[in-house]
Amino acid sequence: MLGLAGAIFCTLAGAAVGGALKERQHARLRLLESESEMLAQLRIMLIEERMGLGQLLVECAALGGDSLFARRLRYAAKALDQEPLGGLERAYGKASDALPLYAETREDKAAMLHLFRQLGNGTSAMREQAVAAAMRRLKPVVEQARKSAHTGGKLCMQLGVLLGLMLGIALW
């Protein structure tokens, strides 16, 4: 009886671990898509609206609703307002530290910091180019994340269940 319970538990635990891995991949996809959308908006606003960077971040974040990246942008805008001499890179760095996104990889984080460093300097055209370059870099990453979320996510779930089941049978 105890063995059966152990086997069921292992199967469920395996399924839970697989599910968590799948969710992480989906969360990363959502984050990257949200970053992509907001960068596209940021690019248009840089050209058309010609507002201060703090206000620009707030306006972009408004379009992102309550997504994690939008919250980070709002935080960065607030940090920039409180400490304008620090510049945008520092403000975004603070936001990034204060609001860690669990689905964000180290590379994603570094790419965003690099973008916000460039966004705080240079002419309008240079900043617009920086956003455009970041969007170009992001596009294949989003595609890859989408594929991973569909195939890899399913695989993680199945592997989790299978391994859990195997362990359960072995214990039984």
Binding site: R50, M51, G52, G54, G87, G120, S124, R127
Partner: peptide, 16 residues
Amino acid sequence: SQIAEALSEHALYARA
């Protein structure tokens, strides 16, 4: 430069 950016509310780029 930082003071100028801060005074312009980080909008110097838009006011070329």
